[in-house]
């Protein structure tokens, strides 16, 4: 009889092993729920919050529709122009801060909007908004470079200025003697 139930002698060891397994298992489950982010697996095998965080970033560059809300005359000026698809920010910079100021001024008429600064002609000066009457702006697109499509209006500056009989060849605003930015009239 005693031999038949002799395995019961070992139950204390079995109990210890079972307890150990339960503690280990619950510890692993606790660690897992702590380490895996709550939104993990919401849309797929990644943190769902990451998607919302990226989508919530605020755009920096302004689009034309924002500019034309106030400067609607420019839209008419450009209607027939070859520059009608050229966005404002190409020649005037970003205008992000300018927009923020304009929105504040719309709510409070006492506020004044800061005037745009003149540009120094350096593409790495990242001014928010600038007035440009600089040949560098025009030539950033229109200077003839190997690789440009044949149907794009590109010029060799020196020969173009000589052909047109321009006087102040070295002046930064030499282009604007004949052309305007919004409607260059080619």
């Amino acid at each position: 009889m005693s031999q038949q139930f002799s395995f019961l002698r070992d139950t204390r060891h079995l109990q210890a092993v079972a307890l150990g397994l339960v503690v280990l298992g619950s510890g692993l489950i606790a660690a897992r729920s702590h380490l895996i982010p709550k939104s993990f697996g919401e849309h797929g095998p990644y943190r769902g919050d990451a998607l919302r965080e990226i989508a919530a970033q605020q755009p920096v560059l302004t689009s034309d529709t924002s500019c034309l809300k106030c400067h609607d005359s420019v839209h008419e000026e450009r209607a027939e122009s070859p520059h009608k698809d050229v966005a404002c920010l190409h020649c005037h910079g970003n205008g992000h801060e300018h927009m923020a100021q304009a929105e504040k001024a719309a709510a409070d008429p006492g506020l004044t909007i800061e005037k745009a600064k003149p540009w120094d002609g350096d593409f790495f000066t990242r001014l928010d908004l600038f007035i440009t009457k600089d040949r560098a702006t025009c030539l950033s697109c229109h200077e003839k470079v190997v690789g440009m499509p044949a149907d794009f209006r590109s010029i060799d500056v020196k020969s173009h200025l000589a052909d047109q009989g321009a006087e102040n060849i070295d002046s930064p605003d030499v282009c604007f003697e004949c052309h305007t930015g919004h409607s260059p009239g080619i």
């Binding site: 950033s140 697109c141 470079v145 440009m148």
Partner: peptide
């Protein structure tokens, strides 16, 4: 046309 405007943007 290789104006590079996309790059700085």
């Amino acid at each position: 046309i290789g104006s590079g405007k996309c790059l700085s943007a």
